[in-house]
Amino acid sequence: MSSPQEGDPVSTPIPPYTPMPSYDEQLPFTWSAPAPKPRNRGVLIFAGICLTALVAGAAGGAVGYVAARETLPTVVASAVDTDSPSIAADGSIAAVAAAVQPAVVQLNVTAADGEGTGSGFIISSDGYLITNNHVAGMASEDGIDVLFADGTHATGQLVGANAGYDLAVVKVDKADLPTVPLGSSAGLQVGDSVIALGSPLGLQGTVTTGIVSALNRPVTASGESADSSSFINAIQTDAAINPGNSGGPLVNGKGEVIGVNSAIASMGASAGQQAGSIGLGFAIPIDTAKRIVDEIINTGSAKTPVIGVQLDNSFTGPGAKVAAVTSGGAAESAGLQAGDVITKVNSTVIADGTQLIVTIRSFAPGDRVQVTLTRDGESITFPVNLTAAQS
């Protein structure tokens, strides 16, 4: 994959919002972490994630993916008038928003590299909530302030995070909290209506709507090390998602969470501009998030499935070319060899190496998948038992 250039479209893991002295006085967008600067209002602070490529489906077409952490907001959303004469119809957007909003929170996070804000949602009445790793994963001790929909605050503790899936679990010491039900992303269809909730631009309690624009979009971002790269087989939506929406829920018409908002695509920002919504948002499918979150709650960490190969990044496709097979790994046991070109995993056609990784990560360690490859001009299928990446 070629390196993106300034001005190319980029995808942003919905960085926490940075309030500026005025909205038109923001710093120029940069491709990687800048040298340390004094932390004050208006300074863009990156979360250690550098630009790589987002592969936009099997047809190709790359845009970039960048994560940033920015300063805490000073914007305060006005309280909703509970005496509104508008009566929400059952199943309407208003009814869904009213049911889900009490379980959506804002996270004000302090980390070694600065302060930022994002979103999250409560999944258990005793205080577990889901957010993004790039929101809370690097929080300092006692550095997570959770702002609830009723205006109360609590200190959150990071239970655990998985950078590879851009997911984190935070726990607050409170009881009888409102929760949002988790649905399923397996049955989603392009065109289904969805609703995004969170704190874009620091505006708590914001609701936007749209549809599922596409499924299985491979999204990837590299972190400070290879081990911290995020790979998401994402739900694409045109619901407006902006900085500060990170970690908030994407729900269906029943008010069930079907995705965790994580990234946006935006045209390359220039001087005086900040990345914002252009109708291309990406969410982590909830079926994937459920496994990761359950493991984090039960063990403090979550395992990442691997196939056990190194890929040839110079190979332009179609398919993912194996550069080397990990000794003792799943691929070697199944019979894969260096030089093989993987073209399909189960029924998913593999366009390139990125799509192979996000497809494998949609499974769990121990799952058995059918890997179809081309070797010496012949198509062969091998059953492969996925193993867990070594920490």
Rank of each mutant, 00 (worst) to 15 (best):
S86H: 02
K344P: 06
F382N: 04
R39Y: 08
Q390V: 13
L129P: 01
T152R: 09
D8Q: 11
G183Y: 04
S362A: 13
S199R: 03
S78A: 09
T374R: 14
D90P: 01
T30P: 09
Q337D: 09
S225H: 11
K290M: 07
S32E: 15
Q106I: 00
D166V: 00
G253K: 06
G91I: 03
G137I: 01
R69K: 09
L107I: 03
S391N: 15
K174R: 15
A47Q: 08
S230P: 12
D173F: 00
M1H: 08
K37L: 13
V76L: 02
F382I: 05
I235P: 12
V384S: 13
T82G: 02
G328N: 08
V369D: 07
E224W: 14
V369S: 07
P19K: 10
W31D: 14
F315I: 03
K344C: 08
S32M: 14
V260W: 13
A196Y: 06
S119D: 02
I93C: 04
T74S: 08
A94G: 03
S185L: 12
N242I: 10
G198L: 07
A283C: 09
N242E: 13
L201R: 08
F315W: 01
A94E: 02
A62V: 08
P28Q: 11
P34F: 08
Q204L: 05
G300S: 03
A351Y: 08
P36H: 02
V43P: 01
D90C: 00
E70S: 11
V219H: 08
D192T: 06
T299L: 11
I211Q: 06
Q274W: 12
T237N: 10
G247I: 10
P318V: 05
E141G: 01
Q204W: 00
